[in-house]
Design a protein around this nucleic acid. Structure first.
Lengths: 147, 147
DNA sequence: TTGCAAATGAAAATTGTTTCTATTTATTAC
DNA sequence: GTAATAAATAGAAACAATTTTCATTTGCAA
């Protein structure tokens, strides 16, 4: 694995540092996506004196090199995830407990068709977020509003 | 028109101030969308001492009241525009010229089913936004990246 | 017209992200 | 292996968009 990461980095003319390896491992282990701060917190377990700018810089370099993907969520923050040729998916966000669950669902194909045929434009990316109550919070059924 | 705006504001229990009228007029005149700062600059022509927080506050209140719509551009800034379509719908946002087009498409039903049956949760709302290039910008095909 | 809650301006705070700079480190040529 | 050097890093500071705070002003219901 480390060898594979090394060759990826080499391909971008980036040096293979322990931090970059760790960052790639973290993203590779995650099935969802992570904010720079999420990545930072995970990496800090290993590198006590890691700076947040280092995380931002590396995430952005790897994104530019097409090794990881970036999404911009409606919360206006950046999120990154490892590029797998796996099914693109979206997240269900519980507005009560803030848990996030993956949804193996994407309307991308339909949207693309609609945009290409209807508007005659081109789709570059899309943002989909579903807000609701997860099973536990549905039971608790507290006075939770959608915001 | 002013009367119409007055009734809209009344419906939200918001007072009819000269600033709110001007703000609504500006958004109503625009066929695309505007950033809070865009709105601020246009309003300053009329109100010399207008504060930017006032613009942010009002845009957000009107958005919450469903009088104006909000989109989040890939540049991570907020943009607002006047709601003309009553149906629930989604947005196609041209990342090049900033035009917004309504898409009469919603995958809400499928998502709902998936969430209820799969996760056993409840959907409260969803946000779907498609970023891309509109027909004109596809033709121009400039060096525009999804950024 | 008056009283009061709502709206506002100005300044300051916050948040997420980026830049700067001195120091450290991975790689390359020997 | 080792030295030279260009890239990578930490830490501090800068930044930009947005939000909060609070004292003052204003719309509007009584």
């Amino acid at each position: 694995m480390e060898l594979y990461f090394h060759s990826l980095l080499k391909g971008l003319n980036l040096k293979t540092t322990p931090r970059r390896i760790a960052l790639l491992e973290i993203l590779d282990d995650e099935q969802g996506y992570l904010s720079p701060e999420d990545v930072w917190m995970r990496m800090k377990r290993k590198f006590r004196s890691l700076g947040l700018p280092t995380v931002y810089r590396n995430l952005e370099e790897l994104h530019e090199g097409n090794i990881i993907s970036r999404v911009i969520h409606p919360d206006r923050k950046l999120y990154y995830y490892f590029c797998r040729n796996e099914e693109h998916h979206h997240h269900f966000v519980c507005v009560s407990c803030r848990r996030v669950e993956d949804l193996n669902f994407c309307a991308g194909r339909e949207m693309e068709k609609l945009v290409v045929e209807g508007i005659r434009g081109r789709v570059l990316s899309h943002i989909l977020q579903i807000n609701g109550l997860c099973s536990e919070c549905v039971l608790k059924e507290g006075a939770v509003s959608d915001e």
